[in-house]
């Protein structure tokens, strides 16, 4: 049994410690957000956050995760009450097939939590690991900037 903290809840998982987190999220915990795209760390479809950083869940064996804080798109908000990054993606309609989208949201979330004011060049460099074949990159960039504005505004408001 390996104990994993996912979206604030602790789960005891009976899986081989070598199993990449992606498979445990999807098949043991029933979370659909992280997607299998390549299993090679080349596309970012599987991106989740671990201790605040964006990581490829397809290459992260659960053996290294006890004691660490895992977040997936399911932890950012719901369809009815989306988090700021999710809301910005909706507002910009930043998807076509949407297969890459959850990974995009998670990578953007990791950036904006540290740097909500990130500029275009910074956002592009940060998002570089994630691929979108439908060509929604321009919408994604708009959504990330929009979310950044919302998150800066929110922070100011709460001060």
């Amino acid at each position: 049994m390996i104990s994993l903290s996912v979206n604030g809840r602790t789960h005891a998982v009976a899986a081989d410690p070598a199993t990449p987190l992606l498979y445990v999220l999807r098949n043991d915990l029933g979370l659909n957000g992280a997607k299998f795209g390549c299993g090679l760390g080349q596309c970012g479809a599987c991106t989740v956050m671990v201790d605040g950083a964006a990581v490829f869940s397809c290459l992260t064996p659960i053996a290294v995760l006890p004691g660490r804080r895992i977040r997936t798109i399911e932890g950012l908000g719901t369809a009815a009450a989306p988090g700021p990054v999710q809301a910005a993606f909706l507002a910009e309609q930043a998807a076509q097939c949407g297969y890459c989208t959850a990974g995009m949201v998670m990578r953007a979330q990791a950036l904006l939590e540290r740097e909500p004011g990130a500029d275009e060049a910074r956002i592009r460099a940060h998002m570089q690991p994630n691929l979108c074949r439908c060509g929604t990159q321009l919408r994604i960039l708009r959504a990330v900037r929009r979310a950044g504005r919302a998150m800066t505004g929110g922070r100011r408001a709460s001060l």
Partner: peptide
């Protein structure tokens, strides 16, 4: 707005993969 996006953005089961 696209009818399918809210679920896709919240981890809903949307694909045959899911």
């Amino acid at each position: 707005p696209r009818v399918d996006l809210p679920a896709k953005l919240a981890g809903g089961a949307a694909y045959v993969q899911d």
